[in-house]
């Protein structure tokens, strides 16, 4: 009996030892799950599904999407980070849960960008500021002058707590203006309030504002992007107008920490290939997301900056 057990144990151990290098050569041998940290049907979900399909070819395995929503997006990250680091469970997310919401949710088994592995960035989205078409100002400078003459009179629709407020506060501080910040829970509510003429200004994501601007229901003052967008070259950036503020919502693909080096390499290669996939580019471009592969290390540096800024802001309160 004991002998039998011993043999079984040895065989098992041998099998495991053999299996390890074997798996390294052939990863992945089974489907790789891609976790999306928002419910099915949103913008993140569309991106996740497009990415999953684009990664299937380079990986040679199906990539099912799992929606793990809740906790301001942090729950999905938890589901990935706590998985075994074998590469069979990865996730796609924006920087919002990882750098901002993370400070608001207690008891997370992860925190700073060092506690998980970023495989790479896949695209970025920017915010912009628009005004009512009949507003008494046409440029950002005129708006700032108006706001200085009428302190506390202007209102801006936006979203509380996240990147939106962070960017707006930075800009308002640099410009020295006092504008009432009216927070909504999402782009839909924020733009509806603006279109209902409840606020003079709106600070939301570019794709949302662009649609209204094209219809003449808003005039765009400036965009928080590093450079002008190609489709609307007449919209200036905050940077060129003298405010060094950039908001990026960066979409990244990430995995649990301590992935085996070869598995990581394969996954990164698959992400890089997926980002060039025409269908994938189409889905992201339609949402006005700038698609480009960005190195995981660089993304980690950027995430850490924002993470630290919010940790500091939280501590100051």
């Amino acid at each position: 009996m004991t002998f039998q057990k011993l043999v079984t144990a040895t065989l098992c151990a041998a099998a495991t030892l053999c299996a390890n290098p074997l798996r390294a050569d052939t990863f992945p041998t089974k489907p790789v799950t891609l976790v999306v940290n928002y419910p099915a049907g949103g913008g993140s979900d569309a991106i996740g599904r497009a990415l999953a399909r684009a990664m299937e070819k380079p990986l040679g395995q199906p990539v099912p999407v799992e929606n793990v929503a809740g906790g301001g997006g942090t729950r999905g990250v938890t589901a990935v980070v706590t998985a075994p680091p074998d590469g069979y469970r990865i996730g796609v997310a924006t920087n919002s849960p990882m750098t901002i919401a993370v400070h608001n949710v207690a008891g997370l088994p992860w925190n700073s960008p060092g506690t998980y592995e970023i495989l790479g960035g896949i695209g970025s989205m920017y915010n912009a500021v628009c005004a009512q078409p009949d507003a008494p100002f046409n440029t950002l400078k005129e708006m700032v002058d108006y706001a200085k003459k009428n302190p506390g009179q202007l209102k801006v629709s936006s979203i509380k707590g996240g990147l939106n407020q962070y960017t707006w506060d930075q800009f308002a501080k640099a410009a020295g203006i006092d504008v009432r910040f009216v927070p909504y829970s999402g782009d839909a509510d924020g733009i509806a309030s603006f279109l209902g003429k409840n606020t003079e200004l709106v600070n939301l994501t570019w794709p949302t504002l662009r649609a209204q601007m094209d219809a003449g229901k808003a005039k765009c003052l400036a965009i928080f992007a590093p450079a002008r967008v190609t489709t609307h070259p007449d919209v200036p950036t905050f940077k060129e107008l003298g405010y060094d503020v950039i908001t990026t919502s960066d979409y990244v693909v990430y995995a649990p920490k301590d992935l085996p080096a070869d598995v990581r390499k394969k996954l990164v290669a698959a992400v890089e290939t997926a980002v060039k996939d025409p269908d994938f580019v189409r889905v992201l471009s339609a949402q006005s997301i700038v698609v480009a592969f960005q190195d995981g290390g660089d993304m980690k540096t950027r995430f850490t900056e924002v993470y630290d800024a919010f940790a500091k802001a939280k501590g100051a309160n």
């Binding site: 419910p39 099915a40 049907g41 949103g42 913008g43 979900d45 569309a46 497009a50 839909a188 733009i191 509806a192 279109l195 662009r210 649609a211 209204q212 094209d214 219809a215 229901k217 189409r282 889905v283 471009s285 339609a286 949402q287």
Partner: peptide
């Protein structure tokens, strides 16, 4: 008429248009 989805269900319809490269909105 506005390109604004008030419920997740219609947001998905909107998403389906976006994915096809159609810009929803007032236009």
């Amino acid at each position: 008429s506005l390109g604004i989805p008030f419920t997740p269900n219609v947001a998905l319809l909107l998403g389906a248009l976006i994915v096809q490269g159609i810009q929803p909105g007032p236009l």
